[in-house]
Computed example of a mutant assay.
Amino acid sequence: MSSSTLPPIIYSQPTLDRASRALGCAPFTLTLFAAMRSQGISLNAIAASSGVEKNYTQHPLLELSAESNLIWLIKVGLLRREVDGQGITDSFRLTPLGHQLVKQWEMQEDSFSSVSWCDRIANAAHRWLRLPI
């Protein structure tokens, strides 16, 4: 059975809400997540001026900041690290949850700008306190 014929995974509403909030609060553009659908994107392509040039970010991010944000998106289930024959790489890809949310967000073009301050505070609190997710 190919992956295209598998039924979609059903996620709980709290999982979808948390992941959607984290996605909207991330300093990345929908262009980055759309690119991650078909290929792994390296940290070097996202950080610094390279990220702005590729429209992955709206402003340059330090490598440490970009990686920290990507790791948070791994923790909430949106991304995974790419693996090759040698082990873990510096590239990131979408998980099935990430695929589902990016598809939804592409249909709602203003979703990234519609994240409220309450959502941003909740996301920051979860990250800072490392509350169970």
Rank of each mutant, 00 (worst) to 15 (best):
T5F: 12
L6P: 00
P7M: 09
P7T: 06
P7K: 11
I10D: 08
I10T: 07
Y11Q: 09
S12W: 02
Q13I: 14
P14E: 09
L16I: 11
D17E: 11
R18K: 11
A19C: 06
A19E: 04
S20Q: 06
A22K: 03
L23S: 03
C25M: 02
C25T: 02
A26T: 04
A26Q: 08
F28Q: 03
T29E: 05
T31E: 13
A34D: 08
A35W: 03
M36P: 02
M36T: 01
R37S: 10
G40P: 10
G40S: 14
S42I: 05
N44E: 13
A45Q: 15
A45R: 14
I46P: 01
S50F: 00
K54W: 05
K54S: 00
Y56V: 01
Q58P: 00
H59L: 07
H59V: 05
P60I: 02
L61H: 02
E63M: 10
A66G: 01
E67R: 14
L70Y: 04
W72Y: 11
W72K: 00
L73F: 11
V76I: 13
V76E: 03
G77P: 03
G77V: 01
L79Y: 05
R80G: 08
E82V: 12
E82C: 11
V83R: 15
G87P: 08
G87C: 11
D90V: 05
R93D: 02
G98P: 04
H99D: 12
Q100D: 03
V102W: 04
V102R: 01
V102N: 00
Q104M: 06
Q104A: 07
Q104C: 01
Q104K: 09
W105S: 04
D110G: 01
S111M: 11
S111P: 00
F112L: 15
S113G: 02
S113T: 02
S114C: 13
W117Q: 05
R120M: 13
I121T: 09
N123M: 07
A124E: 13
R127P: 04
W128M: 01
L129F: 15
L129Y: 15
I133H: 13
